[in-house]
Design a protein around this nucleic acid. Sequence first.
DNA 1: CAGTCTACCGACCGATCGGTAGACTGTCAA
DNA 2: TTGACAGTCTACCGATCGGTCGGTAGACTG
Lengths: 214, 214
Amino acid sequence: MKLQKPTATADRLVDIAESLFAEKGFYGTSIRDLADGIGIAKSSLLHHYPTKQKLYGAVLKKLANEMTLEVKGISERFADEKEQIFQLVQLLCDNSEKKPNRVNIILRELLDNPKRAEKAKKWFFVDYFKELTGMIKSGQDKGLFKPVNPEIFILQLLGAHRYLIISLPTVRQFFDESIYQQILKNHRAELETFVKERLMKEKGDHNGIYRNSV
Amino acid sequence: MKLQKPTATADRLVDIAESLFAEKGFYGTSIRDLADGIGIAKSSLLHHYPTKQKLYGAVLKKLANEMTLEVKGISERFADEKEQIFQLVQLLCDNSEKKPNRVNIILRELLDNPKRAEKAKKWFFVDYFKELTGMIKSGQDKGLFKPVNPEIFILQLLGAHRYLIISLPTVRQFFDESIYQQILKNHRAELETFVKERLMKEKGDHNGIYRNSV
DNA sequence: CAGTCTACCGACCGATCGGTAGACTGTCAA
DNA sequence: TTGACAGTCTACCGATCGGTCGGTAGACTG
């Protein structure tokens, strides 16, 4: 029985850790919570990951690998940079519904990273970020995109999306339900418009994933 | 000596709490850290704020009041909605340099708020957010702005800015210093361009805080 | 069947957590 | 002068923290 799933426990730990770290953060999550979450003893957790920090690192690594792969997949499947960017927007929006933990963990990591000081070790998301800015630069080289600063554009795009996502629970709690629903419904289109206006040159009204609604 | 500053300790506690909560989050900050930070005993802290949660609440309240006042100040000083929005961008950028703790606390609050469940009590930033969306709606009523969804636009604007701000330490740590400097230098202008393209109607090339560079 | 390995466990460690109790101080109003 | 009181302190509490320790069960290897 055990042999059938040789590393099942370690994987399950990463899964539960992803959701608990997303929900309560690194310091707000105890290794007891994590162990209890999958029904093993605390010392068993520490058998697989000798410190909480190591487990957290495994979560980050898995997350970064998945995300980098997804983005590289877009680069490979679509030759046109315009199409790539719009696919990226789709990916962001789809994933914040399908994998809601991701955005939380990334934001928490950005906030805590300066103090946790995992220096010397290369940060997990460097490849991810460079892949994204690479898309922009490539499109600019071909004259498809406006000459925005690629890094700033990506940060603004990710920020516009992710900040909205983490605001949703609060919006729902303290504002009218109708406002919340409006945001949910139109966010994707507004993000596409953001990309179009901010990045695309006027002429060449690109392949219409999204028609200008105004 | 004590009487000269009757409530000085309570205020100093809010100050140190603002910076420590910003840096390490609610769960990452202990009341011992806070008390040591201003050189008083832990129980003295608890005399002024009976729980850590109450102190945290005081920090949020002060922050929200300051920010709401600043935004209302813009509404009052400038009649033109276009000008108001550009002043808002200035305010955001200036404050993230002058009061770097703010963005961190706000982001952490958005992340933790769903679980901390301070329900029943009105959230501190409701007024702030409504003031901002009010600006947009007012400008739209006068036909100055495009018919974007006001709530989404504000969330995207705040997100584009604040996400970039909290990313800066990480960018500096893991990317070339030149990239970091480029971001610092151009962020404000890129944010203004974002507002112009996303919100302003084409005609009426408004008072030129920032010329279209493309 | 001895040796080795992985997975897991309960008991325990020192440290730190948020919070309480009670004593002492100085100030101020009656 | 006295009593109330805000502010501060030391000492302490039970709970929980991250992590260690010694040991068990079972599977695989020679």
